[in-house]
Design a protein around this nucleic acid. Structure first.
Lengths: 203, 203, 203, 203
DNA sequence: AGATAACCGAGACGGTACGTCTCGTCTTGAT
DNA sequence: ATCAAGACGAGACGTACCGTCTCGGTTATCT
């Protein structure tokens, strides 16, 4: 979220509703127009807000879209379905469902592309989007270890590296399937993918 | 590459050198400026060509960048190192090396993002970039089957589905590692990834 | 002058100085470049103004030049030299002097030519340029009638027709002499012309 | 007309029909589009001719239009109706009829405007258009002198000056009436005008 | 008969200006 | 201090013509 002056006593306070309206308008504009045709002027109009209000809160299109898209991932939750395979399948399906939505598709890859040349933006993405998902991997592994489905990893650094690898494999495969191959990441595909992944990790 | 009228006998022929100059200029502009700050006017200037010449050959920025980036992947080759694992490691490393180049990073994800709302563009990407890489998966598997490292798949359709899955997993993981996690896909990472992948496929 | 929304209270008001700067820059560009080589981008640059500011106020080159040239004719004044002939000679000489200036020459005929296919433009010319001059004919005749140099016209419609005829003859002759024959409408020529005109009207 | 190499024996000769086709196409384009929207590429297409053919014969739009419009005035003829007044009325009406045609209106004033900054163009207009009409004034005066309607002018230079003045007055008034006032130069107007002119010259 | 040379169509070329669009900032009066 | 409104300087967009050039091919005259 945009930075706020922690203490600001005097003057008219910022409209609280404006933030939500702007982010919602941004998502709708992503649906209607896609990233490249989305303009901040249009978002401001949709939100019933002046352009200045928008620029007071966000530095630009990139930051705004990151925040707008990040909210979509808040609903991700690790299901507790009894087996590691089922848990993974569940969370991957949720992830795929979010990525199938046009506001996520169109916006997420674009900001990732922008982030290749903007370190601050990449950090914002990592903080707002990636790390929020990564907890799912950690939680899932922890739960699986409690169940005895996975061995306890003695070396914490190696464990972190493995978690990162898993995350790259899961997120990468779903994204590639959805955006590049343009095929649905449906139940059947997710089941195949999960089988390969778990088999690969069991070794 | 842009479509050409198959027979066009009359009139001055299009300059053969202009194409190469434009694509090279596009790649350099991607390095210098990145996708979002790249302008076709600037590319034309760099290539020593008029803007009209550029628009005569490509419909817009997206198509031009796809062609410019696609050429980068022509150098990909499947090494014949004796074992499936080494072959995969070799080609994944090559792929990672290309993706590490700024002109690929900045351009590829951006056109993929654009392609979420443009079917023709997605087809162009698939034809120019994706399918050219997919042959590597097929070749690699074929070779591994000859060596006896992989069982012969009796059902060709299931084999195709598996190849697609492998491709999504490989390309997706490398892309995600490189662009989103922003960590190098170095030898160590590739070795870990390959181990998981092969173990997963061996079941 | 360009039409303004009669009441527009909100928002930043249009810069008052920009108008004058643009019209002056237009006249200077007419002097330097002539009508056909005058570009709105160049005018904007000369005026120290963005192109959008210019297009916000005028629909195009034609309207802009009409306004720029019209201001030149504001300085026309009917001299009160005691005799009708001298009055006419005086005002015709003033008119000729304005037409001799390159910004008037180059711009006026061009917009008249454009106006042959643009009714709104013709009306703008008539309102901004022609009618402002026509008052001189009416004033001059009125004054001459008071002096007894011209008979009082009983039929007002016939009087109007005669005024129009006089105006076409005066303006047309000076314009043709200046622009087509490309000879100076100097004192000698004006005296000859006035003699013929007055003799013709005295009948 | 465009200059031709006086002696050129070898090589394929220029197409004789092309000239006429181009000039006719130019006039039609003036009718359809007006001066400012007329393009040489379009004229070439209309004439069924390549752009190069057109540029080989004319230096540019201005010269082409002068030639195209000049042909319109070739049909002007001094009627021999017995009285000077009737002769003048007849020729002025003819002149007005030509000026009323859209290809003349739109083209003539535009090239005159261009000629304010192009001496060669002004000479071309004078040679092709103006001088061809001026003979009518001289012929008319000569005939009137034979009839005894006008006194014989002893000083040839003064006679030339008067002829120029007459020409400026006639052409100027008709042009101004037609293009600026945008009223028809019909029989009634021509009669009024002629009365004033002759009365003015009789003194 | 063949060579030579200017012509022709077509259309690509390097330029330039167009008029529009969006950017991010600034200037109003009002809250 | 913030708000809606909207003008502002800046600069890229994709298009249209400009006048030139480069093709393959077509007439003509001159050996």
């Amino acid at each position: 979220m945009q930075s706020r002056s922690p203490v600001s006593r005097t003057g008219r306070p910022r409209s609280a509703t404006a933030d939500a309206a702007i982010l919602a308008a941004t998502r709708q504009a992503l649906v209607d127009l896609g990233w490249s045709k989305l303009t901040l002027g249009d978002v401001a109009t949709r939100a019933g807000v002046a352009k200045t209000t928008l620029y007071r809160r966000w530095a630009g299109k990139n930051e705004l879209v990151v925040d707008a898209v990040a909210e979509l991932f808040d609903e991700l939750e690790l299901p507790d379905s009894g087996s590691l395979a089922a848990d993974i399948e569940g969370v991957v399906l949720q992830f795929a469902a979010i990525l199938a939505r046009p506001e996520a598709k169109s916006g997420l890859m674009a900001v990732v592309a922008e982030a290749t040349r903007d370190d601050a933006l990449r950090e914002r993405i990592r903080a707002s989007v990636v790390d929020r998902q990564k907890r799912l991997v950690l939680e899932g592994r922890c739960r699986a270890q409690e169940r005895g489905e996975l061995p306890t990893e003695p070396d914490p650094e190696a464990g972190s590296r493995t978690a990162d690898l898993i995350f790259d494999m899961v997120a990468g495969a779903v994204v590639h399937r959805t955006l590049v191959s343009a095929e649905p990441a449906d139940e059947e595909w997710v089941r195949s993918f999960t089988r390969v992944l778990l088999q690969g990790l069991s070794g």
